[in-house]
Amino acid sequence: MEEALMRFTEFFQVLPTLLFSMVIVALFGASLPMITFAIGIVSWTAVARITRSEFLRIRELEYVTASRASGASNAKLMFRVILPNALPPIIVQSALMVGSAILFEAGLSFLGLTDPNVVSWGQIIGSNRQYILESSFTVTIPGLAIFITVLAISLVGDGLNDALNPKLRQR
């Protein structure tokens, strides 16, 4: 079962993400829920692989073996022992993925592949690209907004890593 899920994950990992999401949006429409679905369907593999690798690494450690020997059930091992110790890299990867999703949506909007009735920073940049030499602020300000938002989300993810990492709790 695990191997089949990993092969399924690898299938989605080898697809060209921008092209695959463009196909999904073109086939099913450019509504906000469909764009969210398209970004999610091409982005979930990174978190899945990090989660699996952390669980495989942690399940071999001594404290997990000790918990198993003391009679802990598989559910308790997964949710009470392994998951809290696997969370920091998963949270960091998830925060990076949110930043990537914002950039991805901005790229799709820039290309005109989103709902024209929903304003987005990428759409603003795309619609004002012809005025870049006369009024550069029309593309600079939305670009800075994207940059600051992605940077803030990355810093929040790093802060959550520091707060939730059991190895750093002594500090």
Results as ranks from 00 to 15, higher is better:
M1D: 10
V64W: 06
G71C: 08
R171L: 13
M1L: 12
A95Q: 05
N74L: 12
I39M: 01
A69T: 09
I124W: 02
F37E: 03
V156G: 01
E134F: 15
L18K: 04
M78V: 14
Y63S: 01
M34T: 12
S31K: 09
A152F: 14
I58N: 05
M22E: 07
Q123H: 10
F20H: 02
I82L: 04
V150S: 05
F37W: 04
R80H: 14
R80M: 13
R129K: 15
V47L: 13
F37D: 04
M6W: 13
F104T: 05
V118E: 11
A95K: 05
W121H: 10
V119W: 13
L27G: 13
I91P: 03
V119I: 15
I50G: 00
L151R: 08
L19Q: 09
S109C: 05
V14Q: 11
F110R: 04
D158C: 08
L32I: 15
A72Q: 08
L113G: 04
E134T: 15
I35F: 00
L164N: 09
L144V: 11
S109A: 14
W44G: 00
Q93F: 09
R169H: 15
A26K: 04
I58M: 02
P84T: 07
L61N: 08
N165P: 06
L27Y: 12
G157C: 07
M97F: 08
F28C: 06
T149I: 08
I132Y: 11
V119S: 15
A106S: 15
F110M: 07
F55T: 04
R169Q: 14
V23K: 07
L160H: 01
L133A: 13
G40V: 03
A95L: 08
E105H: 06
R52P: 05
L96S: 08
I82G: 03
L15C: 04
T114G: 11
F8Y: 15
V118K: 12
A145K: 02
G122Y: 00
G122H: 01
G157R: 06
M34S: 07
